[in-house]
Amino acid sequence: MSQTAHIRSHRKPRRSASKIAMRAGVAGGVLSTLAVAGASGTATAAEPVTQTLELPTLTADLTAEAAISAEATASAAATYELQAERDAAAERAADLAERNLKKAKAEAEAKQEAEEKAAREAAERASRDSARETLTTASASSSASTAVSGSAAAVVAFAKAQVGDAYVSGATGPNAWDCSGLVQAAYKQAGVSLPRVSQDQSVAGTQVSLSNLLPGDILYWGGAGSAYHVAIYVGGGQFVGAQNSGTGVVQASLDYDPPSGAVRVL
Results as ranks from 00 to 15, higher is better:
6 H>Y: 08
8 R>F: 07
8 R>Y: 06
10 H>N: 14
14 R>I: 14
14 R>G: 15
14 R>Q: 14
14 R>P: 09
17 A>V: 08
18 S>C: 08
20 I>F: 11
22 M>T: 10
25 G>Y: 10
29 G>F: 13
30 V>I: 11
31 L>K: 10
31 L>Y: 01
31 L>D: 08
34 L>S: 09
36 V>G: 09
36 V>P: 01
41 G>R: 12
41 G>I: 12
44 T>C: 06
44 T>P: 06
47 E>S: 15
50 T>W: 10
51 Q>G: 02
52 T>N: 05
52 T>M: 00
53 L>W: 00
54 E>A: 11
58 L>G: 09
62 L>M: 12
63 T>D: 15
63 T>E: 10
65 E>I: 06
66 A>D: 00
67 A>I: 01
68 I>N: 13
68 I>A: 14
71 E>T: 03
72 A>G: 02
76 A>T: 11
79 T>I: 06
80 Y>W: 06
84 A>V: 03
85 E>W: 05
90 A>R: 04
95 D>S: 12
97 A>G: 09
99 R>Q: 14
101 L>I: 07
102 K>S: 09
104 A>I: 06
105 K>W: 13
105 K>F: 13
115 E>H: 13
115 E>D: 14
117 K>N: 09
118 A>T: 10
123 A>E: 00
126 A>I: 00
129 D>M: 02
131 A>S: 03
131 A>I: 09
132 R>V: 09
132 R>A: 05
133 E>C: 00
135 L>P: 04
135 L>A: 07
140 A>N: 10
141 S>T: 13
141 S>P: 11
143 S>N: 11
147 A>T: 12
148 V>S: 09
155 V>C: 12
157 A>C: 02
157 A>F: 02
159 A>H: 08
160 K>Q: 15
161 A>C: 14
161 A>L: 10
162 Q>D: 07
163 V>N: 10
163 V>I: 15
164 G>Y: 13
167 Y>D: 11
175 N>E: 13
176 A>W: 05
180 S>V: 04
181 G>S: 04
188 K>M: 00
190 A>L: 01
190 A>F: 00
191 G>R: 00
191 G>D: 00
193 S>K: 02
196 R>K: 03
197 V>P: 01
202 S>L: 01
205 G>M: 00
207 Q>P: 07
208 V>L: 04
208 V>S: 04
213 L>V: 02
213 L>C: 02
214 L>K: 14
216 G>K: 15
216 G>V: 03
216 G>F: 12
219 L>N: 08
220 Y>W: 08
220 Y>C: 01
220 Y>G: 07
222 G>P: 05
223 G>W: 01
224 A>W: 02
232 I>P: 15
235 G>A: 01
235 G>Y: 04
236 G>Y: 03
237 G>H: 06
237 G>W: 13
241 G>S: 05
241 G>I: 01
242 A>I: 02
245 S>M: 04
249 V>M: 00
259 P>E: 11
265 V>D: 03
266 L>E: 06
